[in-house]
Design a binder for these strands. Structure first.
Lengths: 346, 346
DNA sequence: GATTAGAATAATAGCGCTATTATGTAGCCG
DNA sequence: CGGCTACATAATAGCGCTATTATTCTAATC
């Protein structure tokens, strides 16, 4: 007489699995799986039976099991400096919209401008065997680069263009933004220029805009230019403080470019308080074209970065790469440019 | 003579697995797994050997395999109306900071205020066996509720409080915001009040603020109040348009509450253009205390919702629930309140 | 020094799904 | 009408990890 077989293992589990669906539809699990992955390969009758079973059982697929079996997931990992920042929020939103259409999920992380955190975030991102990784900017640690290269995952670097690219990139040249701002102010007859910047020590892209600005301004005959900066994140309050410092240190200033529109808005308000006429006595150029810029008084001349387009193009590259996964991956660099919106403030 | 055994299956795989690490450290995979999950249970010598092996091999754990085996993941799924919206961006950032400390990953989705999309997003979220789900607001479809209830996953509803809660909630009462704005204007001696709102048909929380405003205003003796709205999302531009409509339709208006600070900013700019003195002829109250509100000219009286605190508290509840997963889950409702910041505009 | 609790490590058995291969079944041709 | 292709479905064998159970190995006790 055999000893009663003891129940040995007890495992947690999903309530409804693909096996339950298959049983109810009187088909094999393989066919149900196929129904999800390649619906066209399943007959109409089978499809209907499966759909009914799914509905009746309220089946929710387990994407972790699927991803493990397929050795890949439908997750796209996005790492931005900050979600609080309207620029990146716009790009993230666009990415999510476009990727969502292909049933790709967004996993979001932010570095809060601490670049050395990026490696950990990338490591965690790769733990999910993502379909692609989106990074902000071009400067990444050697370890981060190695991790990503070894993983063979498609990479898109966004919001900045430069000389090197890991895989794909979508963005624009920030030094050109600074150059454009300077050129515009000079064209408006301004000779004493300032760049007001926030957090330039951490925000490399803003720093590059400042450099481009200075370069163009100092190469122009009869024009002088300087940078005034503040370590805090950009805000209207910081903009007001910077404007005060500007008129104190450089009373003859007549052209100002700001690292972004928050700063510029602060400048506008502070000039109203100080009775400095814009644009008569002082021309102001911003960066960002934020939601308030066109409605400001005076309306703000600004340089608009195509945050939305960056997201859309990045998504397009990712999707193209995924659909063409057998083909030789080819590098892609998309320069989205930017546009100067000339309004009342200059 | 046996036929040569043909190679049958070929599978994609991770380059370095926990088995490789174990082999290199001359330990079993179990011990390596333990090293990750309960480091204290592994001897110092073993820990060191494992750490060395991980480093040498550049091992990246596969969280999908881990999640599948453990029947749970370290993902927290967050569903907000819009990441473009500074309010939610702040909360998402705070959540991410706090959850990140516990090695919990954020998976983000947005509905763009289309409530009927929420069910699909929740379904996808649940496919990852998340450790928790965070939803915005209290109104969810019956199917969404059922999905979530059946999943037994901890739920936190944020940014709104009301009579019912699915599981846990962190937020405040939006009708009280409207009441506070109205009371404040009345206290400042204003009798002809307006609420300027954007997208009230989709943004239920803004609509509730409007209701609260109207209720309090109309219950006050000698006070009249109306709502003017615009279907577009809130922006300074819309604010300017609404102010124009306001002074046209109600020339005697002397107190305005706005559905948020973008609207209020537009009102301020438009009043500057029209020569309407704030606060002498018109008092303005906003909602949000956005980055520009304190720096505006005049500085904007506004009601500050604690977006950051909401994120922190939500994270706290989630972490507490996860750490106490064996205990009876207990409902929790946290009223974060909000605060009126009295500045120059009223 | 035999006994044993406790700590550390190892073996075992899947988690739920997909990719691959195998099988069955029509449809078509010479 | 045998044989072949194309299509639909099923069987098979894991993906890389964790939870459980089993086995050591140490250290403490009498």
């Amino acid at each position: 007489m055999a000893a009663p077989k003891p129940i040995r293992t007890r495992r947690k589990m999903q309530r409804v699995t693909i096996m339950d669906v298959a049983a109810r539809a009187e088909l094999s699990p393989s066919t149900v799986s196929l129904y999800f992955r390649k619906p066209d390969a399943v007959s109409a009758a089978a499809s209907e039976a499966i759909a009914r079973a799914i509905d009746a059982l309220d089946y929710v697929p387990n994407l972790m099991a699927g991803g493990l079996a397929a050795a890949s997931s439908r997750v796209v990992s996005i790492i931005v400096p900050s979600v609080r920042n309207a620029f990146f929020a716009e790009t993230v939103a666009a990415l999510q919209d476009e990727l969502g259409k292909q049933r790709l999920q967004v996993m979001l992380s932010h570095t809060e401008y601490k670049e050395h955190d990026e490696e950990n975030l990338v490591r965690t991102a790769l733990s999910w065997a993502p379909a692609a990784v989106v990074l902000t900017g071009l400067s990444h640690s050697a370890a981060t680069r190695r991790l990503l290269r070894d993983s063979k995952v498609p990479i898109v670097e966004i919001w900045e263009l430069g000389s090197t690219t890991m895989d794909m990139a979508v963005g624009f040249h920030h030094d050109q933004v600074g150059q454009t701002a300077a050129s515009h102010l000079i064209q408006r007859g301004r000779k004493r220029l300032l760049f007001l910047g926030a957090r330039l020590h951490e925000d490399r892209r803003a720093a590059r805009r400042a450099e481009g600005f200075l370069e163009t301004a100092r190469n122009a005959p009869g024009v002088t230019a300087d940078i005034i900066q503040h370590p805090a994140p950009a805000s209207a309050e910081v903009g007001g403080m910077l404007l005060n410092e500007a008129v104190h240190r450089f009373p003859d200033v007549n052209g100002i470019a700001c690292s972004n529109d928050h700063i510029a808005l602060g400048v506008i308000f502070e000039c109203q308080r100080l009775g400095i006429a814009i644009p008569e006595r002082l021309s102001v150029v911003g960066f960002g074209d934020l939601s308030f810029s066109a409605a400001a008084n005076p309306s703000l001349t600004t340089i608009r970065p195509p945050g939305d387009l960056i997201g859309k193009e990045a998504a397009r590259l990712i999707i193209a790469r995924i659909l063409n996964s057998d083909a030789q991956p080819k590098q892609a660099v998309i320069d989205t440019r930017f546009s100067l919106l000339h309004r009342q403030s200059s």
